[in-house]
Design a protein around this nucleic acid. Structure first.
Length: 276
DNA sequence: CCGGTCAACTCGCAGC
DNA sequence: GCTGCGAGTTGACCGG
């Protein structure tokens, strides 16, 4: 598995470097090129770190229950941390947007029933203005925990989690979708950063090899004596190929100075002089 | 005020 | 055709 399998960046390094960076990018994701080269992400970990919501976050008054109003000095009990079902929400769901109607039709009967019980809580107030749902710290933590175990949910898991969080299954589903997207984006950024470093290293390597080539050419010009010697006598080190033969023993032409199989900088076990 | 974050949306595609 | 998912977008909210 090459690096490009995980991140279809369109970059081709072309020196046979085999990166071992893990990427769980599904095949479908290959459509999207790398982005945000300017962003610097030095984290080597594949799994991104997410900050959980803080208790200090202010939540809007939802369904007549002040949820987590830390800013105003309001006290809350554990059960208040979870948003409560809205008594009028099913109509609100459909009125949220025109496309939402289609979604609602898509819901299975089981899910629809849960929708009725634990319906949209935050989307609109009485003025029809969309309110943003903020998950509580506990909800986020539980979702994160669940995501660590499996990044996708089957319907049963979704239902169970939704019940546990007092959210609608749809909300859980959306959260997981967004979470996967964030993970992928983070991974893409890490991949891009990695490729950038690869590119820099290979550029250096290329520069070094060019220089070496120039030096060897100069040496060849300065000492034409080599040209008259049998090829076998020119061999210095068969493994490092620092000085290759201009022609084989049979006189067939070969590339004068072949590039080392692997860039020295990437393989700590490649010691050109080890075999000398 | 502006940019970042994130829940929630639409759309298109793939798998069944 | 249905369903689930990814990609891209929207809009509320928040902090600097």
């Amino acid at each position: 598995m090459g690096f490009d399998d995980g991140c279809n960046t369109g970059l081709v390094l072309g020196l046979g470097f085999t990166a071992t960076a893990e990427s769980s990018t599904p095949s479908k994701a290959a459509k999207r090129p790398c982005l945000k080269f300017e962003q610097s992400t030095t984290a080597a970990a594949v799994e991104p770190s997410l900050t959980l919501g803080l208790f200090g976050e202010t939540y809007k008054k939802v369904n007549n229950i002040d949820v987590n109003k830390a800013g105003s000095g309001g006290e809350f009990s554990d059960h208040q941390l979870y948003r409560q079902p809205s008594p009028h929400s099913h109509s609100a769901v459909s009125s949220f947007s025109s496309g939402r109607v289609k979604r609602e039709k898509d819901l299975s009967s089981e899910e629809t029933e849960v929708e009725r019980v634990s319906s949209r809580i935050s989307d609109e107030d009485d003025d029809g203005v969309r309110k943003k749902l903020r998950l509580t710290k506990e909800q986020s933590a539980l979702l994160e925990e669940s995501f660590k175990q499996h990044s996708t949910l089957n319907p049963k898991q979704k239902q169970a989690l939704a019940r546990q969080l007092n959210l609608r299954p749809r909300q859980v589903e959306v959260w997981f979708q967004n979470r996967r997207a964030r993970t992928k984006l983070k991974q893409t950024e890490v991949d891009c950063e990695f490729l950038k470093k690869c590119c820099e290293t290979l550029t250096d390597e290329n520069r070094r090899l060019q220089k070496e080539l120039q030096e060897l050419k100069a040496l060849k010009l300065a000492q034409p004596f080599y040209m008259h010697m049998p090829a076998a006598t020119l061999t210095m080190c068969p493994s490092c190929e620092r000085i290759g033969t201009g022609a084989g023993a049979d006189g067939t032409s070969k590339i004068p100075f072949s590039m080392a199989p692997k860039p020295h900088c990437f393989n700590p076990f490649t010691n050109p002089s080890a075999a000398c």
